[in-house]
């Protein structure tokens, strides 16, 4: 079978912990079936850093906590027909968004200057141009681009991701049983 006929799937981890990707790998033996029906484009799974072409489905883990996250997310929107927020961080910011109740400067000062275990005699907050600039707060994915589906969970179970992916790839509506939609 020529590989070009397979629909492409891309994935990324923005301000996430890779837990959602781990859950995707947790589909166990079904990963062979997945490899049969899709081709992976840009993804940490194959380490492709740029898009090779247009994709049917993009899976987004994590929200946007820095400039680079925003660029990557916009790139995904451009290259994917269907964009799915996978997990609580993409959906509402998740653990990284705990900083949203606190002013950014206060956060950085606590982390690099005033924290009880901080040793930083130079008193400098990391500012290397290589480090992506932090946003004032953590934004969920659908505050930045249009998101077509949301799969809650921390992480969503492998079954949740699998059911949704199979439905999307076969142009069926995503309809998940009660057990598979959880916020934790």
């Amino acid at each position: 079978m020529p590989h070009t006929s397979k629909p492409k799937v891309a994935t990324c981890s923005l301000a996430g912990c890779f837990g959602c990707h781990m859950s995707l790998l947790d589909i166990d033996a079904r990963i062979l079936q997945l490899a049969e029906i899709v081709e992976f484009d840009r993804s940490p799974i194959n380490d492709y850093k740029e898009f090779q072409g247009h994709c049917r489905v993009g899976l987004i883990e994590g929200g946007c906590c820095n400039e680079e996250n925003v660029h990557v997310l916009r790139d995904f929107r451009k290259h994917c027909d269907v964009l799915v927020s996978v997990g609580e961080c993409a959906i509402m910011g998740g653990i990284p968004a705990m900083r949203n109740t606190i002013d950014l400067k206060e956060c950085l000062d606590e982390a690099y200057l005033n924290g009880p275990s901080v040793y930083n005699p130079g008193g400098r907050v990391p500012d290397d141009p290589e480090i992506p600039l932090l946003l004032n707060k953590v934004y969920c994915a659908h505050e930045v681009v249009k998101i077509d589906y949301h799969l809650p969970g921390c992480p969503p179970s492998a079954d949740t991701i699998w059911e949704a992916l199979v439905a999307l790839l076969s142009d069926n509506p995503v309809s998940l049983p009660y057990e598979l939609v959880k916020y934790d």
Partner: peptide, 8 residues
């Protein structure tokens, strides 16, 4: 509110 269900 601040509802972080994953660790509640």
């Amino acid at each position: 509110g601040n509802h972080f269900c994953p660790f509640c």
